[in-house]
């Protein structure tokens, strides 16, 4: 392991609050001598320590687990959600930039109408919560469950459900989509639950309610561009969107026929 360092030029979106209009600030001195073994967020930690030393406000960014699983982190890095490695921002390491000879890095928050900026690189993703609350669950109360093995599930379905369930809710799919659509996020949950026998009872209702909510909270429509899946750190595939569209048609027809509200 060598201790190769790099000197970077960072263009970072700084915005004091949701009311402030914000703009880019360039950092050169603070971004000198960055070790290639640092994670992207450790690089920002180092920059922040230098800013604090100079009595300047550190850059605000969201993060928590730094293991690629909580979904809290998420930055637009040179125009790509989570940067050039199709992983989470916290798992992106500086050696990727070194290898590609990139020293000029632009860092922005997720940009989407449904994700307003709170400060600097921090956005409000509450719209995702509302989609899940609209139906992203199976209605089972504690204590009422039958024995877990009373319901065998074909391994293939369980595995596919797990693919959808692995979504971390980071929002990269929305940020990458030119329409700021939340189709991949929503369809991953609908697919996860819809692929399991436990999820069948509420399947029609679920898709109708979640898709309605998705539109209502300000996400755009899907025009099959596929950028969402291309940046998804958990590699959730577009087939979930196709599945959701089929479920939606089925549910709309069923509901239309039975004239339920």
């Amino acid at each position: 392991m060598s201790h190769d360092t790099m000197d970077l030029t960072l263009h970072v979106w700084r915005q004091k609050s949701s009311k402030d209009s914000g703009g880019f600030v360039t950092y050169v001195e603070e971004a000198r001598g960055i070790s290639e073994h640092m994670s992207f967020l450790e690089m920002l930690d180092v920059v922040n320590e230098k800013l604090i030393e100079k009595n300047e406000d550190p850059i605000a960014f969201d993060h928590d687990c730094r293991e690629g699983i909580c979904g809290m982190c998420g930055l637009m890095i040179n125009g790509i959600a989570h940067g050039p490695d199709q992983t989470t921002t916290c798992q992106l390491h500086m050696r990727v930039f070194k290898e590609q000879g990139i020293t000029d890095i632009t860092i922005e928050p997720w940009r989407a109408k449904a994700f307003p900026v709170i400060k600097d690189l921090v956005v409000d993703r509450n719209a995702f919560e509302m989609i899940i609350q609209a139906g992203g669950y199976i209605s089972v109360s504690t204590g009422s469950a039958p024995d877990a093995n009373s319901l065998p599930i074909p391994k293939e379905n369980a595995d596919k459900a797990m693919d959808g369930a692995s979504c971390i809710g980071c929002g990269a799919c929305v940020a990458a989509c030119p329409n700021a659509s939340a189709m991949l996020f929503t369809s991953a949950k609908i697919g996860h639950l819809g692929l399991l026998p436990q999820g069948q009872v509420e399947r029609d209702d679920r898709v109708l309610r979640m898709v309605n909510k998705m539109d209502e909270v300000g996400f755009g429509g899907c025009t099959n561009i596929g950028e969402c899946s291309a940046v998804c750190p958990k590699e959730i595939g577009l087939e979930f969107i196709a599945r959701m569209n089929r479920d939606l048609i089925r549910a709309s027809l069923a509901k239309g026929d039975s004239k339920k509200p």
């Binding site: 669950y137 199976i138 089972v140 504690t142 204590g143 009422s144 469950a145 039958p146 024995d147 877990a148 093995n149 319901l151 065998p152 599930i153 074909p154 391994k155 369980a158 595995d159 459900a161 797990m162 369930a165 996860h192 639950l193 399991l196 436990q198 999820g199």
Partner: peptide, 22 residues
Amino acid sequence: VDIIDQCVAQGVPFAREYGGLL
């Protein structure tokens, strides 16, 4: 033992064998 029942009912996709059991 109740925990596993509860989680499966919620749709937690635990690993399964080819026969479909946990």
